[in-house]
Design a protein around this nucleic acid. Structure first.
Lengths: 231, 231
DNA sequence: GATGTCATTATTGTATCCAATCATTGTCGG
DNA sequence: CCGACAATGATTGGATACAATAATGACATC
Protein backbone atom coordinates (compact mmCIF):
# COMPACT_ATOMS: atom_id res chain seq x y z
CA UNK A 1 0.00 0.00 0.00
CA UNK A 2 3.03 2.25 0.10
CA UNK A 3 3.51 2.13 -3.63
CA UNK A 4 2.57 5.19 -5.69
CA UNK A 5 -1.09 4.73 -6.38
CA UNK A 6 -1.38 7.97 -8.23
CA UNK A 7 -0.32 7.58 -11.80
CA UNK A 8 2.58 9.95 -12.01
CA UNK A 9 3.01 9.53 -15.70
CA UNK A 10 3.57 13.03 -17.00
CA UNK A 11 4.04 11.54 -20.40
CA UNK A 12 0.96 12.07 -22.50
CA UNK A 13 -1.21 15.07 -23.08
CA UNK A 14 -2.49 14.91 -19.56
CA UNK A 15 -0.13 16.67 -17.25
CA UNK A 16 -2.48 17.05 -14.36
CA UNK A 17 -1.71 18.72 -11.13
CA UNK A 18 -1.34 16.63 -8.00
CA UNK A 19 -4.51 18.03 -6.49
CA UNK A 20 -6.50 17.11 -9.59
CA UNK A 21 -5.16 13.57 -9.51
CA UNK A 22 -6.04 13.20 -5.84
CA UNK A 23 -9.55 14.49 -6.47
CA UNK A 24 -10.06 12.09 -9.34
CA UNK A 25 -8.73 9.13 -7.40
CA UNK A 26 -10.71 9.79 -4.24
CA UNK A 27 -13.87 10.48 -6.21
CA UNK A 28 -13.52 7.16 -8.01
CA UNK A 29 -12.85 5.31 -4.81
CA UNK A 30 -15.83 6.84 -3.07
CA UNK A 31 -18.24 6.36 -5.94
CA UNK A 32 -17.08 2.80 -6.43
CA UNK A 33 -17.53 2.05 -2.79
CA UNK A 34 -13.88 1.26 -2.15
CA UNK A 35 -13.93 3.91 0.54
CA UNK A 36 -16.99 3.03 2.58
CA UNK A 37 -19.37 5.59 3.94
CA UNK A 38 -18.41 7.04 7.29
CA UNK A 39 -14.73 6.30 6.87
CA UNK A 40 -12.42 8.83 8.45
CA UNK A 41 -10.06 10.32 5.90
CA UNK A 42 -6.84 11.22 7.67
CA UNK A 43 -4.81 13.74 5.76
CA UNK A 44 -1.43 12.38 6.77
CA UNK A 45 -2.38 8.79 6.03
CA UNK A 46 -3.69 9.69 2.59
CA UNK A 47 -0.64 11.83 1.92
CA UNK A 48 1.67 8.96 2.77
CA UNK A 49 -0.28 6.45 0.73
CA UNK A 50 -0.54 8.65 -2.31
CA UNK A 51 2.99 9.96 -2.11
CA UNK A 52 2.21 13.65 -1.95
CA UNK A 53 2.23 16.23 0.77
CA UNK A 54 -0.84 17.15 2.79
CA UNK A 55 -1.57 20.32 0.87
CA UNK A 56 -2.97 18.69 -2.27
CA UNK A 57 -4.90 16.30 -0.05
CA UNK A 58 -6.53 19.16 1.80
CA UNK A 59 -7.41 21.01 -1.36
CA UNK A 60 -8.87 17.83 -2.80
CA UNK A 61 -10.97 17.25 0.31
CA UNK A 62 -12.39 20.74 0.10
CA UNK A 63 -13.31 20.15 -3.50
CA UNK A 64 -14.95 16.83 -2.72
CA UNK A 65 -16.82 18.47 0.11
CA UNK A 66 -18.28 20.97 -2.33
CA UNK A 67 -19.33 18.02 -4.47
CA UNK A 68 -21.03 16.46 -1.49
CA UNK A 69 -18.92 13.33 -1.37
CA UNK A 70 -17.28 14.05 1.97
CA UNK A 71 -18.24 16.00 5.05
CA UNK A 72 -15.78 18.12 6.95
CA UNK A 73 -15.97 19.64 10.37
CA UNK A 74 -13.47 22.16 11.61
CA UNK A 75 -10.45 20.54 13.17
CA UNK A 76 -12.18 17.19 13.17
CA UNK A 77 -11.35 15.92 9.76
CA UNK A 78 -13.26 14.54 6.84
CA UNK A 79 -15.51 11.53 6.56
CA UNK A 80 -17.03 9.92 3.51
CA UNK A 81 -20.59 11.12 3.38
CA UNK A 82 -23.55 8.85 2.95
CA UNK A 83 -27.07 8.94 1.69
CA UNK A 84 -29.97 8.24 3.97
CA UNK A 85 -32.81 6.21 2.55
CA UNK A 86 -34.86 9.37 2.28
CA UNK A 87 -32.04 11.06 0.41
CA UNK A 88 -31.75 8.08 -1.87
CA UNK A 89 -35.44 8.11 -2.64
CA UNK A 90 -35.44 11.83 -3.33
CA UNK A 91 -32.50 11.39 -5.66
CA UNK A 92 -34.49 8.96 -7.75
CA UNK A 93 -37.50 11.24 -7.73
CA UNK A 94 -35.43 14.11 -9.08
CA UNK A 95 -34.07 11.82 -11.75
CA UNK A 96 -37.59 10.80 -12.68
CA UNK A 97 -38.66 14.44 -13.13
CA UNK A 98 -35.64 15.50 -15.15
CA UNK A 99 -35.17 12.36 -17.24
CA UNK A 100 -38.78 12.25 -18.37
CA UNK A 101 -38.40 15.85 -19.42
CA UNK A 102 -35.22 15.14 -21.34
CA UNK A 103 -36.87 12.18 -23.02
CA UNK A 104 -39.83 14.29 -24.03
CA UNK A 105 -37.52 16.78 -25.69
CA UNK A 106 -35.45 14.06 -27.31
CA UNK A 107 -38.03 11.79 -28.86
CA UNK A 108 -38.92 14.04 -31.80
CA UNK A 109 -35.22 14.46 -32.54
CA UNK A 110 -34.10 10.84 -32.32
CA UNK A 111 -32.67 9.57 -35.60
CA UNK A 112 -31.42 6.25 -36.93
CA UNK A 113 -27.94 6.78 -35.56
CA UNK A 114 -29.30 7.24 -32.05
CA UNK A 115 -31.39 4.10 -32.26
CA UNK A 116 -28.45 2.14 -33.62
CA UNK A 117 -26.30 3.28 -30.74
CA UNK A 118 -28.98 2.42 -28.20
CA UNK A 119 -29.58 -1.03 -29.67
CA UNK A 120 -25.88 -1.73 -29.63
CA UNK A 121 -25.72 -0.86 -25.95
CA UNK A 122 -28.72 -3.08 -25.24
CA UNK A 123 -27.01 -6.03 -26.91
CA UNK A 124 -23.86 -5.46 -24.95
CA UNK A 125 -25.82 -5.25 -21.74
CA UNK A 126 -27.62 -8.50 -22.49
CA UNK A 127 -24.36 -10.30 -23.15
CA UNK A 128 -21.99 -8.75 -20.69
CA UNK A 129 -21.95 -10.53 -17.39
CA UNK A 130 -19.77 -8.04 -15.57
CA UNK A 131 -21.84 -5.98 -13.22
CA UNK A 132 -19.55 -2.98 -13.20
CA UNK A 133 -19.63 -2.70 -16.95
CA UNK A 134 -23.37 -3.24 -16.99
CA UNK A 135 -23.93 -0.32 -14.66
CA UNK A 136 -21.86 1.97 -16.81
CA UNK A 137 -23.57 0.84 -19.99
CA UNK A 138 -26.91 1.29 -18.33
CA UNK A 139 -26.10 4.94 -17.92
CA UNK A 140 -24.77 5.19 -21.43
CA UNK A 141 -28.04 3.82 -22.72
CA UNK A 142 -30.07 6.39 -20.85
CA UNK A 143 -27.71 9.18 -21.84
CA UNK A 144 -27.89 8.17 -25.48
CA UNK A 145 -31.63 8.76 -25.41
CA UNK A 146 -31.28 12.16 -23.76
CA UNK A 147 -28.45 13.59 -25.79
CA UNK A 148 -30.55 15.01 -28.64
CA UNK A 149 -32.43 17.15 -26.12
CA UNK A 150 -29.31 19.28 -25.98
CA UNK A 151 -29.53 20.15 -22.31
CA UNK A 152 -25.95 19.68 -21.16
CA UNK A 153 -26.35 21.01 -17.63
CA UNK A 154 -29.33 18.80 -16.99
CA UNK A 155 -27.60 15.75 -18.40
CA UNK A 156 -24.57 16.34 -16.21
CA UNK A 157 -26.76 16.87 -13.18
CA UNK A 158 -28.64 13.64 -13.79
CA UNK A 159 -25.39 11.80 -14.35
CA UNK A 160 -24.12 12.90 -10.97
CA UNK A 161 -27.34 11.83 -9.30
CA UNK A 162 -27.11 8.44 -10.99
CA UNK A 163 -23.54 7.82 -9.87
CA UNK A 164 -24.15 9.13 -6.41
CA UNK A 165 -27.11 6.84 -5.89
CA UNK A 166 -25.23 3.76 -6.92
CA UNK A 167 -22.21 4.24 -4.77
CA UNK A 168 -21.65 2.27 -1.60
CA UNK A 169 -23.95 -0.50 -2.57
CA UNK A 170 -22.14 -3.75 -3.03
CA UNK A 171 -22.52 -4.97 -6.56
CA UNK A 172 -24.85 -7.90 -5.89
CA UNK A 173 -27.36 -5.52 -4.43
CA UNK A 174 -27.36 -3.10 -7.28
CA UNK A 175 -28.93 -5.40 -9.74
CA UNK A 176 -31.65 -6.62 -7.52
CA UNK A 177 -34.92 -6.86 -9.31
CA UNK A 178 -33.20 -8.60 -12.09
CA UNK A 179 -31.15 -7.44 -14.96
CA UNK A 180 -33.52 -9.29 -17.22
CA UNK A 181 -36.41 -7.14 -16.10
CA UNK A 182 -34.30 -4.02 -16.63
CA UNK A 183 -33.31 -5.17 -20.09
CA UNK A 184 -36.92 -5.82 -21.05
CA UNK A 185 -37.93 -2.40 -19.80
CA UNK A 186 -35.16 -0.79 -21.78
CA UNK A 187 -36.28 -2.54 -24.92
CA UNK A 188 -39.87 -1.46 -24.37
CA UNK A 189 -38.75 2.12 -23.76
CA UNK A 190 -36.86 2.11 -27.01
CA UNK A 191 -39.87 0.76 -28.87
CA UNK A 192 -42.13 3.44 -27.44
CA UNK A 193 -39.65 6.08 -28.54
CA UNK A 194 -39.60 4.66 -32.05
CA UNK A 195 -43.38 4.84 -32.18
CA UNK A 196 -43.20 8.45 -31.11
CA UNK A 197 -45.55 7.78 -28.22
CA UNK A 198 -44.20 10.47 -25.96
CA UNK A 199 -46.74 10.09 -23.19
CA UNK A 200 -46.42 6.35 -22.79
CA UNK A 201 -42.66 6.56 -23.09
CA UNK A 202 -42.52 9.13 -20.31
CA UNK A 203 -44.80 7.09 -18.09
CA UNK A 204 -42.80 3.97 -18.70
CA UNK A 205 -39.50 5.72 -17.98
CA UNK A 206 -40.88 7.16 -14.78
CA UNK A 207 -42.02 3.75 -13.62
CA UNK A 208 -38.69 2.27 -14.66
CA UNK A 209 -36.78 4.74 -12.50
CA UNK A 210 -39.09 4.74 -9.51
CA UNK A 211 -39.43 0.97 -9.54
CA UNK A 212 -35.67 0.63 -9.53
CA UNK A 213 -35.57 2.89 -6.51
CA UNK A 214 -38.20 0.87 -4.73
CA UNK A 215 -36.44 -2.44 -5.29
CA UNK A 216 -33.14 -1.00 -4.17
CA UNK A 217 -34.62 0.53 -1.04
CA UNK A 218 -36.47 -2.61 -0.09
CA UNK A 219 -33.33 -4.63 -0.37
CA UNK A 220 -31.44 -2.07 1.67
CA UNK A 221 -34.04 -2.11 4.42
CA UNK A 222 -33.97 -5.90 4.50
CA UNK A 223 -30.20 -5.84 4.76
CA UNK A 224 -30.34 -3.42 7.67
CA UNK A 225 -32.83 -5.54 9.51
CA UNK A 226 -30.29 -8.31 9.25
CA UNK A 227 -27.82 -5.93 10.80
CA UNK A 228 -25.48 -6.12 7.91
CA UNK A 229 -25.32 -2.32 7.81
CA UNK A 230 -24.99 -1.34 4.22
CA UNK A 231 -25.70 2.30 4.83
CA UNK B 1 -8.83 48.34 0.26
CA UNK B 2 -6.02 47.11 2.48
CA UNK B 3 -8.24 46.92 5.51
CA UNK B 4 -9.31 43.51 6.77
CA UNK B 5 -12.38 42.73 4.75
CA UNK B 6 -12.89 39.37 6.34
CA UNK B 7 -14.67 39.70 9.62
CA UNK B 8 -12.12 38.29 11.99
CA UNK B 9 -14.42 38.48 14.95
CA UNK B 10 -13.96 35.21 16.73
CA UNK B 11 -16.33 36.49 19.34
CA UNK B 12 -19.72 35.00 18.74
CA UNK B 13 -20.84 31.46 18.15
CA UNK B 14 -19.28 31.45 14.72
CA UNK B 15 -15.63 30.54 14.92
CA UNK B 16 -15.21 29.73 11.32
CA UNK B 17 -12.03 28.71 9.66
CA UNK B 18 -10.27 31.16 7.38
CA UNK B 19 -10.97 29.04 4.33
CA UNK B 20 -14.68 29.00 5.13
CA UNK B 21 -14.73 32.76 5.51
CA UNK B 22 -12.95 33.23 2.21
CA UNK B 23 -15.36 30.87 0.48
CA UNK B 24 -18.36 32.69 1.91
CA UNK B 25 -17.01 36.09 1.00
CA UNK B 26 -16.01 35.23 -2.53
CA UNK B 27 -19.27 33.41 -3.13
CA UNK B 28 -21.24 36.44 -2.02
CA UNK B 29 -19.17 38.76 -4.13
CA UNK B 30 -19.55 36.58 -7.20
CA UNK B 31 -23.26 35.98 -6.77
CA UNK B 32 -23.89 39.65 -6.09
CA UNK B 33 -21.93 40.63 -9.16
CA UNK B 34 -19.26 42.56 -7.28
CA UNK B 35 -16.70 40.34 -8.94
CA UNK B 36 -17.65 40.47 -12.60
CA UNK B 37 -17.56 37.47 -14.82
CA UNK B 38 -14.25 36.76 -16.47
CA UNK B 39 -12.25 38.54 -13.79
CA UNK B 40 -8.86 37.02 -13.06
CA UNK B 41 -8.54 36.05 -9.43
CA UNK B 42 -4.90 36.38 -8.44
CA UNK B 43 -4.07 34.37 -5.39
CA UNK B 44 -1.52 36.79 -3.99
CA UNK B 45 -3.71 39.83 -4.55
CA UNK B 46 -6.66 38.19 -2.83
CA UNK B 47 -4.43 37.01 -0.01
CA UNK B 48 -3.13 40.51 0.57
CA UNK B 49 -6.57 42.09 0.39
CA UNK B 50 -8.16 39.59 2.72
CA UNK B 51 -5.27 39.46 5.12
CA UNK B 52 -4.62 35.73 4.94
CA UNK B 53 -2.01 33.59 3.28
CA UNK B 54 -2.43 32.00 -0.10
CA UNK B 55 -3.31 28.58 1.28
CA UNK B 56 -6.87 29.37 2.38
CA UNK B 57 -7.35 31.29 -0.86
CA UNK B 58 -6.35 28.27 -2.89
CA UNK B 59 -8.57 25.92 -0.95
CA UNK B 60 -11.46 28.35 -1.32
CA UNK B 61 -10.92 28.59 -5.06
CA UNK B 62 -10.98 24.83 -5.40
CA UNK B 63 -14.22 24.71 -3.49
CA UNK B 64 -15.78 27.43 -5.61
CA UNK B 65 -14.63 25.63 -8.70
CA UNK B 66 -16.53 22.54 -7.59
CA UNK B 67 -19.57 24.78 -7.12
CA UNK B 68 -19.15 26.06 -10.63
CA UNK B 69 -18.57 29.69 -9.71
CA UNK B 70 -14.99 29.88 -10.94
CA UNK B 71 -12.96 28.08 -13.54
CA UNK B 72 -9.35 27.05 -13.01
CA UNK B 73 -6.71 26.00 -15.44
CA UNK B 74 -3.38 24.56 -14.41
CA UNK B 75 -0.80 27.23 -13.72
CA UNK B 76 -3.04 29.84 -15.27
CA UNK B 77 -5.15 30.80 -12.34
CA UNK B 78 -8.83 31.20 -11.70
CA UNK B 79 -11.44 33.31 -13.43
CA UNK B 80 -15.00 34.03 -12.42
CA UNK B 81 -17.17 31.82 -14.57
CA UNK B 82 -20.19 33.01 -16.42
CA UNK B 83 -23.43 31.71 -17.80
CA UNK B 84 -24.12 31.77 -21.49
CA UNK B 85 -27.62 32.67 -22.56
CA UNK B 86 -28.25 29.02 -23.35
CA UNK B 87 -27.06 28.03 -19.89
CA UNK B 88 -29.29 30.67 -18.37
CA UNK B 89 -32.31 29.45 -20.26
CA UNK B 90 -31.64 25.84 -19.30
CA UNK B 91 -31.31 26.87 -15.68
CA UNK B 92 -34.80 28.31 -15.76
CA UNK B 93 -36.15 25.25 -17.51
CA UNK B 94 -34.78 22.99 -14.80
CA UNK B 95 -36.31 25.25 -12.20
CA UNK B 96 -39.64 25.04 -13.97
CA UNK B 97 -39.56 21.22 -13.90
CA UNK B 98 -38.53 20.89 -10.28
CA UNK B 99 -40.54 23.74 -8.81
CA UNK B 100 -43.79 22.63 -10.40
CA UNK B 101 -43.17 19.20 -8.94
CA UNK B 102 -42.47 20.61 -5.49
CA UNK B 103 -45.61 22.70 -5.71
CA UNK B 104 -47.68 19.70 -6.68
CA UNK B 105 -46.45 17.84 -3.62
CA UNK B 106 -46.94 20.85 -1.38
CA UNK B 107 -50.43 22.03 -2.23
CA UNK B 108 -52.30 19.27 -0.39
CA UNK B 109 -50.14 19.93 2.66
CA UNK B 110 -50.34 23.71 2.81
CA UNK B 111 -51.92 24.95 6.01
CA UNK B 112 -52.96 28.31 7.43
CA UNK B 113 -49.53 29.01 8.80
CA UNK B 114 -47.97 28.59 5.37
CA UNK B 115 -50.49 30.91 3.76
CA UNK B 116 -49.99 33.49 6.48
CA UNK B 117 -46.26 33.41 5.95
CA UNK B 118 -46.65 33.71 2.19
CA UNK B 119 -49.08 36.59 2.46
CA UNK B 120 -46.75 38.40 4.80
CA UNK B 121 -43.93 38.06 2.30
CA UNK B 122 -46.16 39.33 -0.48
CA UNK B 123 -47.02 42.43 1.51
CA UNK B 124 -43.38 43.10 2.25
CA UNK B 125 -42.51 42.69 -1.41
CA UNK B 126 -45.22 45.11 -2.44
CA UNK B 127 -44.00 47.72 0.00
CA UNK B 128 -40.27 47.28 -0.02
CA UNK B 129 -38.60 49.38 -2.66
CA UNK B 130 -35.15 47.92 -2.27
CA UNK B 131 -34.33 45.62 -5.12
CA UNK B 132 -31.87 43.47 -3.23
CA UNK B 133 -34.33 42.73 -0.49
CA UNK B 134 -37.09 42.11 -3.01
CA UNK B 135 -35.02 39.48 -4.76
CA UNK B 136 -34.34 37.66 -1.52
CA UNK B 137 -37.98 37.83 -0.44
CA UNK B 138 -39.01 36.60 -3.85
CA UNK B 139 -37.07 33.42 -3.18
CA UNK B 140 -38.43 33.18 0.32
CA UNK B 141 -41.95 33.33 -1.05
CA UNK B 142 -41.29 30.51 -3.48
CA UNK B 143 -39.50 28.47 -0.85
CA UNK B 144 -42.36 28.92 1.59
CA UNK B 145 -44.68 27.25 -0.88
CA UNK B 146 -42.31 24.34 -1.46
CA UNK B 147 -41.29 23.59 2.10
CA UNK B 148 -44.20 21.27 2.97
CA UNK B 149 -43.16 18.99 0.12
CA UNK B 150 -40.29 17.94 2.36
CA UNK B 151 -37.73 17.48 -0.39
CA UNK B 152 -34.65 19.16 1.08
CA UNK B 153 -32.19 18.20 -1.62
CA UNK B 154 -34.46 19.47 -4.35
CA UNK B 155 -35.13 22.70 -2.52
CA UNK B 156 -31.43 23.32 -2.04
CA UNK B 157 -30.74 22.53 -5.68
CA UNK B 158 -33.40 24.94 -6.87
CA UNK B 159 -32.12 27.61 -4.52
CA UNK B 160 -28.67 27.36 -6.03
CA UNK B 161 -30.08 27.58 -9.53
CA UNK B 162 -32.08 30.65 -8.53
CA UNK B 163 -29.07 32.46 -7.08
CA UNK B 164 -26.78 31.45 -9.88
CA UNK B 165 -29.15 32.78 -12.51
CA UNK B 166 -29.45 36.16 -10.87
CA UNK B 167 -25.81 36.86 -10.43
CA UNK B 168 -23.93 39.27 -12.64
CA UNK B 169 -27.01 41.08 -13.72
CA UNK B 170 -27.07 44.65 -12.51
CA UNK B 171 -30.05 45.23 -10.33
CA UNK B 172 -32.08 47.41 -12.69
CA UNK B 173 -32.11 44.58 -15.19
CA UNK B 174 -33.28 41.92 -12.81
CA UNK B 175 -36.68 43.31 -12.31
CA UNK B 176 -37.43 43.93 -15.91
CA UNK B 177 -40.92 43.00 -16.82
CA UNK B 178 -42.16 44.81 -13.79
CA UNK B 179 -42.32 43.97 -10.19
CA UNK B 180 -46.01 44.72 -10.32
CA UNK B 181 -46.55 41.95 -12.81
CA UNK B 182 -44.52 39.59 -10.63
CA UNK B 183 -46.51 40.54 -7.57
CA UNK B 184 -49.81 39.95 -9.34
CA UNK B 185 -48.62 36.56 -10.54
CA UNK B 186 -47.57 35.63 -7.04
CA UNK B 187 -50.96 36.57 -5.67
CA UNK B 188 -52.70 34.52 -8.34
CA UNK B 189 -50.45 31.57 -7.63
CA UNK B 190 -51.34 31.75 -3.98
CA UNK B 191 -55.04 31.89 -4.76
CA UNK B 192 -54.81 28.84 -7.00
CA UNK B 193 -53.05 26.96 -4.23
CA UNK B 194 -55.79 27.91 -1.78
CA UNK B 195 -58.37 26.57 -4.17
CA UNK B 196 -56.45 23.34 -4.40
CA UNK B 197 -56.34 23.61 -8.17
CA UNK B 198 -53.10 21.75 -8.63
CA UNK B 199 -53.10 21.67 -12.40
CA UNK B 200 -53.73 25.35 -12.92
CA UNK B 201 -51.33 26.27 -10.17
CA UNK B 202 -48.60 24.21 -11.84
CA UNK B 203 -49.29 25.72 -15.22
CA UNK B 204 -49.26 29.19 -13.80
CA UNK B 205 -46.03 28.63 -11.94
CA UNK B 206 -44.39 27.24 -15.05
CA UNK B 207 -45.44 30.26 -17.06
CA UNK B 208 -44.29 32.53 -14.26
CA UNK B 209 -40.81 31.04 -14.29
CA UNK B 210 -40.38 30.71 -18.03
CA UNK B 211 -41.78 34.17 -18.68
CA UNK B 212 -39.31 35.61 -16.22
CA UNK B 213 -36.54 33.88 -18.11
CA UNK B 214 -37.76 35.23 -21.42
CA UNK B 215 -37.94 38.81 -20.21
CA UNK B 216 -34.50 38.58 -18.68
CA UNK B 217 -32.96 37.06 -21.78
CA UNK B 218 -34.55 39.58 -24.09
CA UNK B 219 -33.19 42.41 -22.03
CA UNK B 220 -29.77 40.81 -21.98
CA UNK B 221 -29.71 40.41 -25.73
CA UNK B 222 -30.75 44.00 -26.19
CA UNK B 223 -28.00 45.11 -23.86
CA UNK B 224 -25.42 43.15 -25.79
CA UNK B 225 -26.50 44.62 -29.06
CA UNK B 226 -25.79 47.98 -27.49
CA UNK B 227 -22.34 46.68 -26.68
CA UNK B 228 -22.78 47.25 -23.02
CA UNK B 229 -21.57 43.72 -22.36
CA UNK B 230 -23.49 42.45 -19.39
CA UNK B 231 -22.44 38.88 -19.87
C1' DG C 1 10.77 43.26 -41.48
C1' DA C 2 9.22 38.80 -39.80
C1' DT C 3 10.04 34.90 -37.06
C1' DG C 4 12.01 31.68 -33.97
C1' DT C 5 14.71 31.02 -29.78
C1' DC C 6 16.20 31.85 -25.32
C1' DA C 7 16.38 34.28 -20.95
C1' DT C 8 13.66 36.71 -17.62
C1' DT C 9 9.72 37.31 -14.74
C1' DA C 10 5.33 36.65 -12.85
C1' DT C 11 2.26 33.23 -11.09
C1' DT C 12 0.86 28.99 -9.64
C1' DG C 13 1.81 24.32 -7.36
C1' DT C 14 4.04 21.70 -3.57
C1' DA C 15 6.59 20.73 0.57
C1' DT C 16 7.91 21.80 5.13
C1' DC C 17 7.29 24.01 9.40
C1' DC C 18 4.59 26.19 13.06
C1' DA C 19 0.17 27.32 15.49
C1' DA C 20 -4.47 26.26 16.92
C1' DT C 21 -7.86 23.05 18.22
C1' DC C 22 -9.86 18.74 19.74
C1' DA C 23 -9.79 14.14 22.09
C1' DT C 24 -7.96 11.43 25.78
C1' DT C 25 -6.29 10.30 29.87
C1' DG C 26 -4.91 10.75 34.36
C1' DT C 27 -5.27 13.23 38.65
C1' DC C 28 -7.38 15.46 42.34
C1' DG C 29 -11.15 16.56 45.28
C1' DG C 30 -15.70 15.42 46.74
C1' DC D 1 -16.75 5.60 43.24
C1' DC D 2 -17.47 9.58 40.30
C1' DG D 3 -17.13 14.07 38.21
C1' DA D 4 -14.47 18.34 37.11
C1' DC D 5 -10.26 19.85 35.37
C1' DA D 6 -5.61 20.07 33.59
C1' DA D 7 -1.88 18.10 30.88
C1' DT D 8 -0.62 15.55 26.82
C1' DG D 9 -0.90 13.64 22.28
C1' DA D 10 -2.91 13.55 17.83
C1' DT D 11 -4.76 16.00 14.02
C1' DT D 12 -6.08 19.74 11.42
C1' DG D 13 -5.46 24.82 9.91
C1' DG D 14 -2.29 28.37 8.28
C1' DA D 15 2.10 30.65 6.92
C1' DT D 16 6.40 30.63 4.82
C1' DA D 17 9.83 28.88 1.60
C1' DC D 18 10.90 26.58 -2.54
C1' DA D 19 10.06 24.32 -7.18
C1' DA D 20 7.66 24.07 -11.54
C1' DT D 21 5.25 26.11 -15.15
C1' DA D 22 3.56 29.54 -18.39
C1' DA D 23 3.79 34.38 -20.20
C1' DT D 24 6.75 38.17 -21.76
C1' DG D 25 10.16 40.41 -24.21
C1' DA D 26 14.79 40.97 -26.08
C1' DC D 27 17.75 39.35 -29.43
C1' DA D 28 19.55 36.96 -33.32
C1' DT D 29 18.79 34.96 -37.67
C1' DC D 30 16.72 34.49 -42.07
Amino acid sequence: MTAPILSTKTTALERKTATARVVALLRDQILSGALPEGLQLRQEKLAAELGVSRVPIREALHQLEAEGLVLQESHKGAVVSGLSIDDLEETYEIRARLETWLLELSIPLLGPQHYARAEELLVRMAVDREDEAWSSQNWNFHAALYTPANRPQTLELVRKLYLNAYRHFPLPIRLTGGRDRMNREHQLLLDLCRQGDIERAKDHLEQHILMGARHLINRLKALRRQGKSAT
